[in-house]
């Protein structure tokens, strides 16, 4: 199993995907939460707009991304925007190299997920005691300093939860890969994260349940180890408090 190059490739694909998606989702949802939290006028409107995609399914998002925004033709939105600047159309999904398809997959997931994590951060921000900010204001701290020394440390529990959920969800990515990359009923040999690999191994032409289950066990072990390690690293500082 571990010597199977297709299985190892699926782990590498997951790593590449996680390296993209985990930090970007984390930063953007935290940023959105900070912006929305400080807004007085139309706060619930902005919150709703960012949160609305959560109700959307991956299939519907994949349809819009594949057939409208990143369709390879000139009338796709991304290529139309490039055209306004005189840049040639890019075949977003039909090439393995350069891997433009990553941009399509990552932005689709970002759009779907950011609202969910923004809500978690908003809840965390609202739990921070206002007296901490008052004390900081008396000390003359502003902007970035307040964020760095008050908001961020106070959000440690929320941040841990968000990172863990992001990682687990990236690990389970299937819907957008399957729906965006599969064309005319066939899936390309590259860009197969673990679940896509398992799907085609266990349920494809081979019906190899043994390999499928062995793969599942290895994946479970990996995710359990990651969860424990991450919990340790992020909470290490707690003992001093």
């Amino acid at each position: 199993m571990l010597r199977d190059p297709a299985f190892r490739n699926s782990l590498l694909t997951f790593l590449a995907f996680a390296v993209f998606i985990v930090p970007t989702t984390f930063v953007i949802s935290l940023g959105a939460a900070l912006l929305v939290a400080r807004t007085r006028v139309m706060q619930s409107f902005f919150r709703s707009v960012f949160f609305l995609p959560t109700a959307c399914s991956y299939v519907v998002a994949a349809l819009v991304w594949k057939m409208s925004i990143f369709s390879g033709i000139r009338s796709g939105l991304a290529n139309a925007v490039l055209g306004w600047f005189g840049i040639d159309s890019i075949p977003w999904l039909s090439l393995a190299e350069p891997p433009w398809y990553w941009l399509v997959i990552v932005t689709a997931r970002l759009w779907l997920q950011v609202g969910f994590y923004m809500i978690l951060f908003l809840a965390g921000i609202q739990r921070i005691s206002p007296t901490l900010y008052e004390a900081a204001a008396i000390d003359g701290a502003e902007g970035w300093k307040v964020f760095r020394h008050i908001t961020l440390p106070q959000l440690r529990a929320t941040s841990t939860a968000v990172l863990l959920l992001l990682l687990i969800n990236a690990f389970q990515a299937f819907d957008e890969f399957y729906n965006i990359l599969s064309t005319f009923g066939t899936y390309p040999p590259y860009a197969r994260p673990p679940l896509v690999y398992l799907y085609y191994t266990a349920l494809g032409s081979g019906q190899d349940f043994g390999h499928g289950s062995a793969g599942a066990v290895i994946l479970t072990l990996i995710i359990a180890i990651v969860a424990v390690v991450q919990g340790r690293i992020l909470r290490l500082g707690d003992r001093g408090d």
Binding site: P53, I69, R74, L77
Partner: peptide, 27 residues
């Protein structure tokens, strides 16, 4: 917010387009 609403707008717009307009080279 506008950026987040674009996909919804494209979904509604494309749902009411004719097939030949969707395939045309102009946005």
């Amino acid at each position: 917010a506008l950026l987040f609403l674009v996909p919804f707008y494209l979904l509604v717009r494309s749902a009411f387009m004719r097939e030949q307009d969707l395939g045309s080279p102009d946005f």
